[in-house]
Amino acid sequence: MRKIFLSLALAFLLMAALLSLIRVAYGQGPDEPDVISRETQGENVREIYAPLQIESPQQPNIGFIDSPTATCYQPDSTQDACYINWYYLSVNADPNYMIAMTVTLNAIGVVARLHGFFQTSMYAPYSLFDRGFKVACGALGSGGSPTLGMAYPWTINARDSANLKSANYGTVYCPAYTP
């Protein structure tokens, strides 16, 4: 009886250990990119990650994308026309080369693509996009805030020659159009 009890207890413990190890392996997600660094602040998120096909470096050369002052403004209050722009966009991957940086308004799609040309960093001032990307301002409350118009989630992606990527995610709110 004692031997049977001991055997059962041993089997139970072995099974528990085996299941815990399987849980670890399952939680690692074979289809998820490897996030090297990630920061959040309110609705804002910025991260550096490596695609599945390459090994994640300890110190990536590509840094966070600088994308200050995401703006939506309405030049003419009598028209349902707003413009989205950033003060500047900047990213550095020295000594790797920058391949590309894209600007996406999630509701619309890719609105800009900047190509690298033998450059280790990339800088785009606000004037590069003229007055900005034209969007609909939207009615009061259409973006979820009672005092604002439409909300536009956005994504900025950058990739370097080592195939490492940096991404910024945020949301900009537009003034409402009230005819």
């Binding site: 910025r46 994308s67 200050p68 703006t71 403004y73 604002l148 003034p175």
Partner: peptide, 9 residues
């Protein structure tokens, strides 16, 4: 309201 500027870090 004519302009909304969102901070990013």
């Amino acid at each position: 309201l004519r302009a909304y500027h969102a901070g990013f870090f």
